[in-house]
């Protein structure tokens, strides 16, 4: 793994061809060793932001910087060794196994032309699948897996890329609670290894659990708040951004949890 460098965006704006601004003047800071959660309502531009941070889209204005240098200036192969992104796969099934899918993460590290992966690459792919709780799926055809299993295999694919920055687009959206928690724990582990981890999440309690920092987007693509997760994800902000009532309760073990709805709440803390 190349040494981790901070991934940042300055005054980042983006519009799709002739459309309205999807993202408007965002400043983002993702440091090695910490998990940044990106949350916000549907259509706020979270996935677009992730694609911009991965260098897959060109900003309309502003810059994405990796270690202070413009990300889009890197040759694409070099960028692929430094930033990995886990996205959903399109439908269509040519019959790859889960292990073959995970191994595709090694492509930026392979030599030219038709060079094959080494035993070390295979070991990395198996390890990545195991870390994503998909080790038992290695030999199964990817197309025959459930959506949750597929999502974990695609996460393993990104892990297998062994990049110092990992960008995850809703990695828990198809997971049952146990797997969602396991993936949250994995995000923290990956950050503890010194990586930059940016994670689009819908489950605010999972964000509280997994992330050190949070960036909250509004429906209009502006930042509502950014900072340490616990300081940012307050009932007031949740009500403000999502338009639903929110309360913060203290669980038996002392952890704060957000309870949402019903209706448009006043955001009072500790309400009965």
């Amino acid at each position: 793994m190349t040494p981790a460098a901070p991934l940042a965006a300055r005054a980042l704006s983006f519009r799709y061809a002739r459309g309205p601004l999807v993202l408007d003047g965002l400043d983002v800071e993702a440091a090695p060793g910490s998990v940044l959660a990106v949350v916000g309502p549907n259509g706020a531009g979270k996935s677009t932001l992730l694609r911009l941070l991965a260098g897959l889209l060109a900003p309309t204005a502003g810059d994405v910087l990796l270690g202070g240098a413009p990300l889009r200036a890197l040759p694409s192969r070099e960028r692929a060794r430094r930033v990995a992104v886990a996205l959903a796969a399109p439908p269509g099934d040519l019959g790859y196994s889960a292990l073959e899918i995970a191994l595709m993460g090694r492509v930026p590290h392979l030599g030219g032309l038709a060079r094959l992966e080494s035993a070390a690459d295979h070991a990395l792919a198996h390890a990545a699948l195991s870390r994503c709780r998909a080790g038992h799926l290695a030999a199964r055809p990817f197309g025959a897996l459930s959506s949750g299993e597929r999502q974990r295999v695609l996460l393993a694919r990104a892990l297998c890329q062994d990049a110092p920055a990992l960008l995850l687009d809703e990695p828990t959206s198809h997971q049952d609670p146990a797997h969602a928690l396991a993936i949250a724990a994995l995000c923290r582990e990956l950050a503890a290894e010194g990586r930059v981890v940016v994670c689009v999440l819908h489950d605010l309690n999972l964000a509280l659990d997994a992330a050190d920092h949070a960036l909250v987007l509004r429906a209009d693509g502006r930042a509502a708040a950014t900072g340490p997760t616990r300081a940012v994800l307050t009932p007031d902000l949740v009500t403000d951004v999502y338009g639903v009532a929110a309360r913060r309760l203290r669980a038996d073990d002392g952890r704060a949890v957000l309870v949402l709805g019903p209706g448009r709440g006043d955001g009072a803390e500790g309400a009965p």
Binding site: R51, L56, L87, A89, G92, Y96, R115
Partner: peptide, 24 residues
Amino acid sequence: ALAHARSLDVLALGDDTARSLGVD
């Protein structure tokens, strides 16, 4: 075709993921 064999595999992951792996 042979020169781009591995890139063809990567396309199965979708255009965006292919791009993120350095394949245009």
